[in-house]
Design a protein around this nucleic acid. Structure first.
Length: 422
DNA sequence: TCTGGGGTCCTAGGACCC
DNA sequence: TCTGGGGTCCTAGGACCC
C-alpha cells in the first residue's frame, strides 16, 4: 500500500510555526518578487483569494479589513522545515520517496497482526503534528494515483480527520464517482477540457475508459493513469532519486532592467548559482543556455524574448560558465528594451566518474581548477563570508522584491526566536 | 507601478545512416 | 505506370507536476 503524506498549506503553515499570534488569521505567501499568491491557509481561502492571483489585485483596504498576513517566500525556512518533516516521516515508514518540498510517498504494510492502515495513518499525522507543528493529510491506496486521490479527500472533507484509506474497491468507486476528473493526478487543464468534450467528467468516468482508448486518444501517461485508477500499480516507489538532468536559475527583476551592465551582473549571478548547484550534484555540463525577456503584460511596448546556447567541453568551473554566459548575452541583447526576466539553463550532464576530459587542456591544471572551485564552495557554505566573481557585481540593482520576508528562524543564529521570561 | 520558479516526460518531425 | 524499408538521434513544443 502507498501512503501520500502532504503538509496542509505548507508555506503558510511554516510561517505560523514561530508566530503563534497568527492562529486563526488569514495568511498568504507570495511568489518570488512578491508577484503572485502561491500559498494560503484555510482562512485566506475562505476570503476567496485564488492560487496564483497577482498580489497587486488585492487592494490595501481588503488586506487591512481582514487583517490578512502577507509574507514573501522564505525558502531558507521552508526547505529546513521540509527536511524536518521528512526526517520524522522516515522514522515512521522505512521506505519513503520524497516527491516535492511538502509531500512524500511511503510504503505501508499491513496484515492481521499489524495495526490497521487507518491507524498507521493517524500515527503519522499525530507524530508530525507533535514533532514539527505542521498538519499533514494522509491518503492511502494500492497505487500512487489512488493514494493521491485519497489525500485529496482527506483534505477536502474535515470529518475524515486528515486520513483516508482506499483499500477496498467499493470505497475507491464511491470516491471516484464524486471527484471531478481534473483532480486526478496527471490530468491538467488541457486534458480536462478534452476529456469533458468526450463526456468524461468524474474520476470514475475516466477509470471506465479502456486503457487502449486512453493510449490511442491521448498518450501513454493517460493510459497509465487509467490503469492506476483501476488498482493496477504502474508506478513504483522511487526511494533513490535519479540525478537531475537540467538546472535552471532564473528570476524576475524587482525593477525592470534596461542597462546592459545590470543585466550582465544578473546573468553572472544566476550562472554562479547554477554552477554551485551543479558541483553540489557532482556533475558536469556540456550545454548552457541564457535567456532574457521583457514583460508580456505591458501593452504598447515591443515584446522581446530570446535565448541562445553554447556547447562546452564538460565543465562545472564557474569561470568557464561565466565566459560562455557573457558571450551568449552579447549575442541576444537588444538595446531599448525593458527587461523583466532573465535566466540561465544548464543541460547535457555527465557524472564526475564518466567525465570526458578536454583533450587540449593540461590535466594538472584541470585538477587545480577543481580544487579552486571546491575551496570556494567550502568557504561560501561556511559562515565566514562569501567569495564571488567580479562580474557578479556588487550593486545588485537587479535584485528581486521581498518586502514581507520573515526571519530564517531555523537556519540563522541571529534569527533564533527569543523567549521572554516575566 | 504590479503577473514565480524549477523540474519531468512524451510526441512529431526532420535529418541522417545503411 | 513506376522511386523501399528500417533504423537512430536531436529538437521544439506541449503537457504535466509542485
Amino acid at each position: 500500500m502507498f501512503a501520500l503524506v502532504d503538509v496542509n498549506a505548507f508555506y503558510a503553515s511554516c510561517e505560523k510555526v514561530f508566530r503563534p499570534d497568527l492562529e486563526n488569521k488569514p495568511i498568504i505567501v507570495l511568489s518570488n518578487n512578491d508577484g503572485c499568491v502561491i500559498a494560503r491557509n484555510d482562512e485566506a481561502k475562505e476570503l476567496g483569494i485564488k492560487m496564483g492571483q497577482p498580489y497587486f489585485t488585492l487592494s490595501p483596504e481588503f488586506i487591512s479589513q481582514y487583517a490578512i498576513q502577507v509574507f514573501s517566500s522564505n525558502y531558507a525556512l521552508y526547505a529546513d522545515m521540509s527536511h524536518r518533516v521528512m526526517e520524522t516521516l522516515a522514522t515512521l515508514a522505512p521506505n519513503i520517496e520524497i516527491y516535492s518540498i511538502d509531500e512524500a510517498f511511503c510504503q505501508l504494510s499491513y496484515s492481521e497482526q499489524q495495526l490497521s492502515l487507518a491507524w498507521q495513518g493517524k500515527i503519522i499525522r499525530d507524530t508530525i503534528q507533535q514533532h514539527n507543528h505542521l498538519t499533514v493529510g494522509v491518503g492511502i491506496g494500492p497505487t500512487k494515483t489512488l493514494a493521491k486521490l485519497a489525500n485529496y479527500a482527506a483534505k477536502k472533507w474535515r470529518k475524515t480527520e486528515g486520513v483516508v484509506v482506499l483499500s477496498e474497491r467499493n470505497r475507491q468507486r464511491k470516491l471516484m464517482a464524486i471527484t471531478p476528473v481534473a483532480e486526478v493526478w496527471g490530468i491538467g487543464r488541457q486534458l480536462t477540457r478534452q476529456l469533458n468534450m468526450m463526456n468524461i467528467h468524474t474520476a470514475m468516468d475516466l477509470a471506465q475508459l479502456s486503457p487502449y482508448q486512453a493510449r490511442k486518444k491521448f498518450n501513454v501517461i493517460v493510459e497509465r493513469t487509467v490503469r492506476e485508477l483501476n488498482g493496477e500499480s504502474c508506478l513504483s516507489l522511487e526511494e533513490v532519486s535519479e540525478p537531475r538532468k537540467q538546472i535552471v536559475c532564473s528570476r524576475s527583476f524587482g525593477e525592470k532592467v534596461t542597462e546592459f551592465i545590470v543585466m550582465q551582473e544578473a546573468i553572472c549571478n544566476y550562472t554562479a548559482r547554477a554552477a554551485e548547484k551543479l558541483r553540489a550534484d557532482g556533475q558536469y555540463c556540456q550545454h548552457i543556455t541564457v535567456f532574457i525577456r521583457s514583460s508580456p503584460f505591458t501593452p504598447n511596448t515591443p515584446y522581446y524574448s530570446n535565448y541562445a546556447s553554447e556547447i562546452l567541453a564538460a565543465t562545472n568551473d564557474t569561470r568557464q560558465l561565466l565566459t560562455a554566459a557573457q558571450k551568449i548575452l552579447k549575442r541576444i541583447w537588444l538595446e531599448d528594451r525593458i527587461y523583466q526576466k532573465a535566466g540561465v539553463i544548464l543541460n547535457d550532464f555527465h557524472h564526475h566518474k564518466l567525465k570526458q576530459f578536454d583533450l587540449f587542456l593540461d590535466h594538472k591544471k584541470q585538477i587545480k581548477n577543481e580544487t579552486l572551485m571546491k575551496t570556494i564552495d567550502q568557504i561560501n557554505r561556511s559562515n565566514m563570508g562569501k567569495i564571488f566573481f567580479a562580474s557578479q557585481g556588487v550593486k545588485g540593482q537587479w535584485h528581486m522584491k521581498q518586502q514581507f520576508l520573515s526571519p530564517a528562524y531555523t537556519t540563522q543564529v541571529k534569527d533564533l526566536a527569543k523567549v521572554k521570561i516575566s
